[in-house]
Design a protein around this nucleic acid. Structure first.
Lengths: 200, 200
DNA sequence: AGAGATTCGATACGCTCGTATCGATACGAA
DNA sequence: TTCGTATCGATACGAGCGTATCGAATCTCT
């Protein structure tokens, strides 16, 4: 029963199953058997694609990171005013926050891995790298918006980028905990962004 | 071999061991055997104090919540200017953030439970309640500071409380991920608090 | 002082996990 | 067509888990 399916697509299928299970039950609720069942394949097939569970998990983190990045990219590209750095900034940060069930699932997975990374240095390094890219993007957008006069010039863009990302992450958590709705969290973020504009 | 030790102190001892293990290895790294060994008692003794692992975990969450509350209370009480709401606010939020190894451990445990709560509604309710108390306290302090003229009057205190807590949580996570030092995170928080003051 | 109750520590049990193994099967090359 | 090989699905295995069980040891009470 050899090569009848494309390997990449099977790996994606398995990762998608792992992703769904993590979002529903957390990291500890994921077993190889469950992943195989959810993906509609046998455990052996999963083992063929991922020699160990850890490799499967790593692929799942990467998939999650790519999902978020792709979504943010998409929002930026599809934005009404793609040339405005201020608009791109709003789309970037708002794009990270969940607003429907698929993105809520994404956030749950993100939180699960974040918690895991706190006690797993190898994972922490991966996450830190992802954040570094985001922080640089946000800082760049802030600087560009600053040059366009859309952001106050007395703002340290690197510091502000860190603060905005922290706020976004915190809002993210509060949404998952049910202390914020996606709408109210987005409103808080927008209020914060509005405060960056120069006084008229 | 009956009642030779005080039950409350044994429970505290066990909870402390569970707490330490969670902070080191995360929730999934905690087993009854390990907890017993760390606490210096047998598994049977742990079972005597906590009929099930879940009850032990619940007690550990409660312990964590109490630790944070007690620490914040202590900082407020010991603050140089206990009468100033603005000072109390700073101590409250800064007190939540980690600044040394014991408080870093606290934060790791907090994050572990937060992630778990995202897929465990019963735990989410406990955490939500804890947050509600914090949000009310912060909002009250904001209102008081507002009345004293230390905070701009155009600020919606409830909204701002939510934003400040989200920022604090986000900074907390970034510290754990190594993207912020306790000092830089505290500086970010203080900058944010400074921005609440009325323009001179 | 001795009987009874209570707590402890050790161990057993049933289960689930990740992973290894292996026969069955389907394809490609000769 | 047939052999060799790559893959799959089922199952086995050893480890580790939470919990149950039970004899030994200690305290209390009469």
């Amino acid at each position: 029963m050899p090569r009848q399916v494309d390997y990449d697509s099977r790996r994606r299928q398995i990762v998608a199953a792992a992703f769904a299970l993590i979002s529903e039950r957390g990291l500890e609720g994921v077993t190889m058997r469950d992943v195989a069942a959810r993906a509609g394949v046998s455990v052996g097939a999963v083992q063929r694609s991922f020699p160990s569970k850890e490799e499967m998990m790593v692929a799942t983190v990467e998939d999650m990171n790519e999902r978020v990045s792709a979504r943010v990219q998409g929002r930026i590209a599809g934005s009404a005013d793609p040339d405005s750095a201020a608009t791109m900034l709003q789309h970037t940060l708002a794009g990270i926050m969940p607003h429907d069930e698929p993105t809520l699932a994404e956030s749950r997975v993100w939180l699960a891995f974040a918690a895991h990374a706190a006690v797993t240095p190898a994972l922490a390094a991966v996450q830190r790298k992802q954040y570094e890219g985001l922080a640089e993007l946000v800082a760049l957008l802030l600087r560009t918006a600053q040059a366009a006069g859309d952001v106050r010039s007395d703002i340290d863009t690197d510091q502000e980028a860190g603060a905005l990302i922290a706020l976004t992450d915190g809002l993210n958590m509060q949404i998952l905990m049910g202390r914020h709705t996606p709408d109210s969290a987005l409103a808080t973020l927008d209020r914060r962004l509005a405060a960056l504009r120069p006084a008229e």
